[in-house]
Each structure stands twice: as C-alpha cells, then as structure tokens.
Write a protein that binds this DNA or RNA. Sequence first.
DNA 1: TTTGCGGAAATACCATGTTGCTTGCCTGAC
DNA 2: GTCAGGCAAGCAACATGGTATTTCCGCAAA
Lengths: 300, 300
Amino acid sequence: MELRHLRYFAAVAEEENVSRAALKLHVSQPGISRQIRDLEAEIGFPLFERSAKALRLTAAGKVFLTEAWEVLLHATAAVKKAREVAKGRSGEIHVGYAPSLTVQILPLLLRAFQGEFPQVRVALHDLSSEEMLTQLGSRKLQVALTVRPPAKLLRGLAFVELARYAMVVAVAPGHRLAKLKAITLAQVAPEPLIGLNRKDYPEYHAETKKLFAAIGRKPNFAEEHEGGTGIVAAVEAGRGLALVPSSLACIVGTRVKLIPLKPALPPIRMGALWLKENNAELMKKFVAAATSAGFDSKPV
Amino acid sequence: MELRHLRYFAAVAEEENVSRAALKLHVSQPGISRQIRDLEAEIGFPLFERSAKALRLTAAGKVFLTEAWEVLLHATAAVKKAREVAKGRSGEIHVGYAPSLTVQILPLLLRAFQGEFPQVRVALHDLSSEEMLTQLGSRKLQVALTVRPPAKLLRGLAFVELARYAMVVAVAPGHRLAKLKAITLAQVAPEPLIGLNRKDYPEYHAETKKLFAAIGRKPNFAEEHEGGTGIVAAVEAGRGLALVPSSLACIVGTRVKLIPLKPALPPIRMGALWLKENNAELMKKFVAAATSAGFDSKPV
DNA sequence: TTTGCGGAAATACCATGTTGCTTGCCTGAC
DNA sequence: GTCAGGCAAGCAACATGGTATTTCCGCAAA
C-alpha cells in the first residue's frame, strides 16, 4: 500500500465517481480504477459497492476514508514540521554553560535568542569544561559556553570569543589582605587556595601550577569545589583565597572582596564552542545570536 | 512521497546504515540509497549527514523519523480498523423500530446482539413505517423492525417475520364494552376510533378503511396520534376505542383493557426489513441475530 | 607521512514491473 | 437507442530495483 492508493481512494470516495476523481487528479479514469482495485485486493475487503453507474462507499470504506485522510494529512504535516526544524525555525538546542563565567552573558543571550526564535527549546546544561568537550563530540551538546580550551583540545572545534574577564583574587572581607588595592601572586602563594576540583577541571590545575611556577612558587591548594558558588562560599567562610574570573563580581556582592592582581594575568577568554563539522542550522543561529548580541569583550 | 520512502527511511534511520537496512528490507543497497535521495530531494532538506563511513540523522531527520513512524503505524492501523468493520466485528448499525410493535422483541434482540458483538454501536431510531422505508432506501438505516409492508412497497426490500400479533380492541376499563370477552367489528364501528396519524401511516388508514368496508361500515376516526403510547393514553382517558396489536399488552397494564376481536382479523406480521442490494456484513449479522433469537412467532 | 586496504555509500547502467494511457466493451438508466 | 460511467485489454513510458563499479574516508602498516 502506498500513499498514492490513499490519495486516489480519497478522491474517488469524495466524488463518489471515478471519472471526476480522475479529472481532479489529472490521471486517466482506468488508471484510478485499477489502483482502487489493487488497493482492495491488498487490504482484502471491498471499499466500494459497485453498480454499473456509480460507486458507493461500504461501511468499511467509510471508516477507511477517514483514516486515509488522517494518514495523508499526517504525512504532509510531518514534512512541514521537519522542514521547520531544518530551517532552524523550531526544534531543540542543547547548550552547555559554565555558570560562573556566563553569569552576565547568558541571560542576555537567552533573551535575545528566544525573542528571535520563540519556537526553539533551549536546553541548558551546567557542565564542567571536560564534560562539555566530550558532549560536543558525542553531539549531546550543540554549543558550549565556556572558557576557551587550549589549542590541543580545539581539534575539530570552532570557538568565538564572547567576553574576556581578568583574573582577580577573592578574599573574605575580614581577611588581612582585604584592605589591599592590588595583590601580587607572591602574596597569594602562601595562603590556602580554594579552587575547582581536579577531576572535572584538569586544565584549571595545570594552568594554576604554571602561573605559580613562573614566580618560582607552588599553589597551596586547600580545598576543591565543583563551581564558582562553592568557591565563593568557602572564601567567605575564611577558608582561604581564590583566583577567580571577574565575571563573578555580580554574584558575590559584598560577601567577598575581589582584588586585582598585580601584575595582571592574561585574561580569561570565554565564548561559544561548537563542532566544526556540525552544520545544524539552529546551532549556527545560536552562535550568530551570541556574537551579534554585542557583549562587552574587554576585561572588566 | 510514498509510504515506501518512509519505510526505507525508517529502516535506514534505525540502523544508521544503508546496507543493513537493505538486508532487512530485502532490497539492494543502491536501491535504498536512491529512494532516500529522492525523498530528500522532494522534501527539500537533508535527512542525513553523510560521511563516507556512516550516516547520521540531522535534527530535522530525527523529527521526521518519529513522524514517519506515526504515519506508517497509522496506515496499518487504518487497514486493521476498516477490516474489522468489513468483517462486521465493529462499526455502527442504524436500526429503525416501531415502538409499539417491538416492545417485547427489541430488548431481547439488543441483548443478544450486543452480547455477541460488543464492539458494535447500535443506533436506534423511532420512526414511522413511512420514514423507515425512505431511510432504508437512502441507506440511513440498515434494518427496520416494523410491520410487514404491503407487497407493492417491498420492491428491493427483504423481510423476515419475527412475530405475529393479533389485532385487539383497546377499551377504557370503565367503558360499557369493557365487560365483553370478545368484540365484533360491528360493535366497534359506531364508537369514536383512536388511530395513528394519516401522514406518517397512510397504510394504516387504508387498511382500517378496508376492514370496515368489508362489513359495510366506515371507521369513525376521532383522534390521530403519533404512536402507541398516545393512543393508549387517549383510550384510557375515555375518548374512544382503538384497534391495536396485542404486543401492547405488556405496556398498558391495567390502564386499558385489550379485548379480542370476533372474528379475529388477520394478525399483524412484524419483522426485520432491509435493502436486498445492501450486503453490509453488520446488517446480515443483525438480521441473523434477530431470526435466531427464536421469538415466539404465534399470535398472542 | 605516506600508502594500501577495507568498509560503506554513491553512481552508472540495465532489466523488469508498475503505472497510466487509449481503445473498446458492458451495464443500466433515461 | 443512446448515453453515462465503470471495467478490461493491450501497450508505452517511466520508476523502481538489481548488478557492477567507483568514490570516499578512516585506519593500519611501512
């Protein structure tokens, strides 16, 4: 059974007349006749009662007619629905994000994107950098909003920078270093350091070690957390200092003090990351929305 | 687009591999490849992302896959559903009935039929004999349960008798004739006669006139009603006598007295009526149920 | 790094089957 | 008898599906 059979059948049933149906369908009358006959043979019961002059639907034919219409409409609706997705006008996009780095950008971006594509469902996933890379690869994510990965991990990935944030030192307000206008890495080195956990953020650890090695010291890691909020809480509790991006400014309020480093470290570059070979329309549109939203890209 | 395209697409999408899908579908790999390409060309967007080694569904392809499955399942379900109707195992049957004549039979018949065919919806229509005949012709009814029509109206119709009822005289209990064990037509003739209305039951009027003409009298019609219940009410109210079938016995109780005629008139033959050329399975089964239910067919 | 090799899809080309057309016949209604 | 309408037969065209072949890309070994 093919849709053609259903189309012909629906036309004949509607007209109750093969010849008129043939005109409407732009095929010959015997052609229709035979298709109907084939259909009846295949399904095993008659759809029409024949008299020499006309056809009349059988009871089964009437039922089949309503069903056939539904099938036909469903088929065209299926194409339409999928086409909307293909054009990126509807669908679903999975976006990974690093909360502490996207605190400022994400709300703006989401608002801009959803305003333009209200039919699109944006699924947000709070993931570690590590997880983002693997899930981009396995296509569970289409886009990741995170720090720019080191070049060796950028194989097959594309990245556009959306913002830069200076690295600053987070200090509890009562801490003896809290009064300073700027802090050197050497001053940080002896203090207990609060950081991200090694498992999820291996790059973070490597980078931090390198920073301190450059001045002949070692980081004094005291605690590891899963995200920025945990780190801030630990710092506020007076358990140590933390090196954090200035993007956290807007969520720490007066709970901890953020003090610039002297000399300044290279800024954190955060942006959108996606699989080069992935050419999903929605992904492109999301990235386009992110870049064109015009965020301040200078270190804060 | 044909169902074949959807079948092939679904198989390929499931296997994510054209060759395996080809094996499953028992067609060659290039055949599938081309059908998929044709489909993509027709709908205007790609369903798969091709790499030399494998296919991967696009986002639109995923959406289309679920829709395609629904279409395919719906198509087979449509056949199944219609087939059930064709076999008379489900569906709908419209049955006309004359309430006063079917009071005894109808409940038994419906119970027997619904017990055997629980999936069938029986739509009952309380109609005059006249309406039943026209609606049988126009196929609004499949079966009519009514008095046997005169031969000249039986053109194209089939009839099986289900019961016979004697014609009796309905009298109010206080009426002076109510004491009699039997009544002659001559005794009825002078009394005001309650009957069915002329418009809906022309045959009834013709027959009644003939009866009285046979004894050289004329019926003294005083009131016309639309059905047995109205007639009984009128008789009970003392407005006159009525000639009614004995089938009414079970609903009049003691409200009116039913007195046999002497000599007895030919009995009323009631039964099932249907269009000869109609060979709807359900109709046949309904008639079969009616005949095999084995109602008492002797005059009561 | 380069070079085969292997697996898988795409392409080319051909045969067959199916669709659809034309013609002609049959039936029932007017 | 004529006409409308459906059906059957025969034929042409086209689409499907098959076989053989090519291409593409990943992978392993030199």
